[in-house]
């Protein structure tokens, strides 16, 4: 079932992440990160997410990330797909 404004992408495999983007949240930007490496890389993951959101023109929304040790390229890719799916572009 597809819910308007919500997109999800990724997996819970090692070195990947599951990411959910809810663009119905229009007031502010909320980023929630669960990660096996949060202590060490939590800030970096958040920075990559914010940068990718900006690049894709997303200012506000609710972003939920369950990370399994993904590298930056995978974070960017999964977020990009989730945004496009939320916007109904894919």
């Amino acid at each position: 079932m597809k819910i308007e404004g919500i997109g999800q992408a990724g997996s819970l495999e090692s070195n990947d992440l599951m990411i959910m983007v809810d663009l119905n949240q229009k007031e502010n930007l909320i980023i929630e990160i669960e990660s096996i490496v949060k202590e060490k890389f939590g800030e970096q993951i958040e920075a990559v997410i914010k940068e990718t959101l900006t690049e894709n023109g997303v200012g506000n929304g609710y972003i939920k990330v369950v990370d399994k040790g993904a590298l930056d390229f995978a974070i960017r890719a999964r977020l990009k797909t989730a945004i496009k799916r939320a916007e109904g572009r894919q």
Partner: peptide, 15 residues
């Protein structure tokens, strides 16, 4: 198909 393409694009740009 969409997510795989996005993933490969980012991989090619960074690896």
């Amino acid at each position: 198909k969409d997510s795989a393409r996005d993933l490969l694009v980012e991989a090619l740009k960074s690896i």
